[in-house]
Computed example of a mutant assay.
Amino acid sequence: MTSENPPRRRLRPRAALAGRRAGGDEHRAVSSDLPSARPHWAARIEDVKNRLIASGLRAVGWDVRLQPYTGYGTPSRVRVLAKALYAPPRTPADHHDQPVHDMRTMAVRGFRSFASQCAPRERVRIDVGERSFTVRADRAGIIDAMLDVELTPGRHEAVLSTHAGNAITTDVLVFDPAQRLGLVSDIDDTVVITWLPRPLLAFWNAFVLQQSSRKVVPGMPALYQEIARARPGIPFLYLSTGAWNVYPVLRRFLFKNGYPDGPMLLTDWGPTNTGFFRSGMQHKLRSLDLLRTTFPELRWLLVGDDGQHDPEIYGGFSREHPEAVEAVAIRQLSNAEQVLSHGARHAEADERAAGRTAVEGAGIPWMEAPDGHGLLREMRERRVLP
Rank of each mutant, 00 (worst) to 15 (best):
D268V: 14
T134D: 05
L376C: 14
V384Y: 09
R299G: 04
T267W: 01
D261Y: 10
P35L: 07
S36E: 15
G374S: 13
A93D: 03
G56V: 09
H346Q: 06
S240I: 04
A22G: 12
L298G: 05
T91N: 00
A18I: 11
R58D: 00
I364P: 02
G182N: 03
A140R: 14
D102S: 02
F276H: 13
P263L: 12
D63S: 14
K256D: 10
G262S: 01
D188A: 02
G275W: 11
L301W: 01
P218G: 02
R214T: 07
E297Q: 10
R131S: 04
I234R: 04
F317P: 01
P39F: 01
Y224W: 12
Y238G: 05
M264K: 05
T194Y: 04
A18D: 11
G355R: 00
S341K: 07
P99K: 00
N166C: 06
L266Q: 02
R12N: 06
A16R: 13
V384F: 07
R380H: 13
G270E: 03
N335G: 03
I227E: 04
G110K: 08
E4N: 06
I45W: 10
G165D: 01
V339P: 00
E337L: 12
V64W: 03
D310I: 13
H40M: 07
P6E: 02
P177D: 02
A358H: 08
I126P: 13
S36F: 12
I168N: 02
G182V: 03
R65Y: 08
V246M: 02
A362V: 10
G71I: 08
A43C: 12
V159T: 01
C118P: 09
S279G: 11
S161A: 04
I143H: 04
A107K: 11
P263G: 09
L290G: 05
R180V: 07
P199S: 08
A243D: 09
L265K: 09
E378I: 00
A59G: 08
K215A: 14
R319A: 15
C118S: 15
P75Y: 04
L34D: 02
R123E: 15
A344F: 02
D148M: 08
Y259L: 11
A16N: 06
L333E: 02
A145N: 03
V208F: 14
D306W: 04
A59F: 12
T170K: 02
Y238H: 08
R125W: 15
P370I: 09
M220F: 12
T91Q: 10
L285A: 11
N166W: 05
V78S: 11
P221E: 01
R352V: 03
Q117N: 15
N273S: 06
R286P: 00
Q210Y: 13
A140T: 13
Q117T: 15
T274I: 14
F276K: 14
D25P: 07
H346R: 07
D176L: 07
A16H: 09
A18E: 12
L340T: 02
K49I: 09
H321C: 14
D289E: 14
A243L: 00
M379G: 04
P311S: 02
M367I: 08
